[in-house]
Nucleic acid binder design. Sequence first.
DNA 1: CAAGATACCTACCTACTGGTAGGTAGTGCG
DNA 2: CGCACTACCTACCAGTAGGTAGGTATCTTG
Lengths: 212, 212
Amino acid sequence: MSQASSFSNNRAEDDARSTRELIIAESLRCFAESGYDGTSLNDIAAGVGIRRPSLLHHFASKEALYAEVFEKLLADWLEHLDIAVADRALGWAKVELVLNAGFQLFEDTPDYVRMMRREALDGGTHPGIDLAAVLRPLFDAASAYFDAQMEAGVFKRHNSRHLLITGYGAILTYFSDAAFIDGLIDDDALTKEHIAEHRDHVLSFFKSALIG
Amino acid sequence: MSQASSFSNNRAEDDARSTRELIIAESLRCFAESGYDGTSLNDIAAGVGIRRPSLLHHFASKEALYAEVFEKLLADWLEHLDIAVADRALGWAKVELVLNAGFQLFEDTPDYVRMMRREALDGGTHPGIDLAAVLRPLFDAASAYFDAQMEAGVFKRHNSRHLLITGYGAILTYFSDAAFIDGLIDDDALTKEHIAEHRDHVLSFFKSALIG
DNA sequence: CAAGATACCTACCTACTGGTAGGTAGTGCG
DNA sequence: CGCACTACCTACCAGTAGGTAGGTATCTTG
């Protein structure tokens, strides 16, 4: 009856992986849209086209499912950002590279941003997840980079750690609060055009503050 | 038996208002901390020291309670910000005035910020609440102000609407995501000192981008 | 004092939550 | 074929959600 089982002509393992992935994808959608408490396992199961017990056959518990979705989120982000971070560009070029990579990533997966925001907002409520601990090496490295560039006179002097927090807020908010921003600008904030507009603004604004 | 009724020697109306206010205050705490779905009426009632049915004697429903808490939030914010907005200062002085008023307000009521963020994140899920509609006049007025100042050459050219969105994100995030930022800076982000640090950074950063 | 209102209570309702028990159809393999 | 395994199902469990019914004690007012 379910769509999933109609594919079971293929190898069983393929089907298994596919259903797991469907569950993770639907969970991401639901958790991003309604949060952990606002999402029931029935919601997710219904979105996938199976029953709750079948979902719990693939994941031990709601907590475990949430943790796995979140781990995938972090892994995807770190993978994509590492490419930009690893680039040997210097000065403003590197900042622009990372910001562009971030905007591209967030444009592709706005649900990730909303889920991440909810997690930051909850502040470590979910057991086994320590967002800050994972991101802190990146934070420290970025802070050191800015300090070095400021020391060298490439960037104007700012508090590098607060600069990063400001940037984090400025960029993620556009995606996490898109539904609210829709109402401010009276249009869909997540169109390609509006995102590009915001990206251009953030780039020129930060460049203006860092270089002049 | 309850603490509330032990005060009933006073005028009944006083007591009534007081219990209502206790409920609203506790609701704010809970909604900010755990969100709408993560907060049960039992949680709130327990925090006040009464039972759930007694709480529902003061408020028709959970939705109605949430709406009233949120209306109070908006009213408080608009009241405080209007004072700064109404000031006849011009150029950077006015921006600094409003930003300082905002920081002071958010420092006093960080729970408001978290609740507001959750609402922006949910994006109009709660019936009878349209955050964007309320804030839009302010948004449009602020946008016009920046456009005029840029036109007059007081500020460097930026996209005023995206500038406001960037500022909104940069400032509110520090308070809404404080628990996460704690983990990044390895300290309580909401101490007077750290807030002042962030305020100083935001002020100098924005001044740097707007004036140079 | 009597009437009415207020603020609280216990007991109960239905709906839904996360999770489990136990069963079945289909697949791969010795 | 027979065994083990996977992926799904229905039926159930205890717990909790928001909300209601109906009662009691206290205070205000005529």
